[in-house]
Design a protein around this nucleic acid. Sequence first.
DNA 1: TCGCTAATAT
DNA 2: AATATTAGCG
Length: 421
Amino acid sequence: MSIVDDNGVAEFPAGLKILIVDGDKTCLLVLERMLRKLSYRVTKCQHARDALALLRGDKNRFDIVMCDLHLPEIDGLKLIEIIVSEMDLPVVMTSSDERQRFVMKGVIKGACDYLVKPVRMESVSLIWQHVVRKRRRLFEAFQQPRTDNINVTDRLSLLQMSNDAAAAASGTVPAIDKRSLQCLKRRSEDISNDGESSDEVTNGKKPRVVWTQELHELFVTAVNQLGHGNDVPKKILERMKAMDVTYLTRANIASHLQKYRMHLQKESARSAANRDLNACQQFQPTHTPPYQLPQQNLANGHVLSTVPNHVDTGSNIFDSNIVSEPPSHCLQTDASLYDLPRPNLLYQNDFPPSDGAAISNEENLHSNAGSVTELSNPFLAADEMFYEPSFLQEEAALVGLQSSMGGYLSFGSNCFGLTQS
DNA sequence: TCGCTAATAT
DNA sequence: AATATTAGCG
């Protein structure tokens, strides 16, 4: 299915240089024939060591590698591992056993895709996608930090200049205050320093805090300990640090606090209304629905908290009157601090209001896979639908010039206000 | 420098 | 939808 232009000259996938590695000669031949039909330039290999020699000999000799799992001498997995670690080539792994795909280790998993043998023409005809992906990722990796950096610093100096100019001209207060500048500075520093750690390496961004129920309870505990008037972000932060929550920033707390307070406000308004109602209608127990963990948290609870992601959504700590137990390794000696009567039982209610319909982890995974990240992580898609026609379209859209925007917007992003969520 | 709130971005 | 960041004020 190579694309042919007006003059009958084969385009893009044609000429793609592919190295196929398979212990079975017949497989090699079959594959070769298929690939040649698609105008690929095929090189065959029966042994991992030959493949490695070829690959190491000239890093630009191939665009993509297709590799069987069962090879003589060196295991296919091992070979792929080496390829992935040594060179930046897209790899498609093939195996006659579909279950084998789950054997792939993390590193490999993220870097290669899977095809079940016997390979069919329709699958093979799509492997150029991997090359596109890889190139796109390279391009983005190369491009993004750079432009961001320039933009930010440019903005920074622009702001600074306009600031100075304005100040000099009018003697009035600059339009941009120090804090804004600081924020920009911080960001540009973030971008220019590449000493990122762990999670930041993967997507280039710091992971966002996930307010699991457990984390939230610690937060509430801290707030309650501090009491009214003292429950400001900085102090809450200190408290939580004392409770062994070390990764939060003041901004995290401030943000959560803001939401928390809005919630309390809403709840107190609600309970006031209830009270009035009850006063009129004699005695009616006030129904307080249990706290529901935000859906997102249910699935991602592992990100930054100790809560396993299989948390039981049915029972929650708000069903009891105890706030939370101190962590066993906590330095706090006064256990009663954790066992305060809770003045804000209202927080047992939804925060924010939710219909309580928790979605399963699996569903969540799928919905995540439907987001933009899917496009940058081939494997997410590879698991079940990579070789479906829809993907062909997407890739075509990305490679070609037709509405690459459409691909993004169709995933339910409302960033541009174009879709309802 | 910090904190608050509302608005907006991701 | 949840969280992060910003603006603008005190």
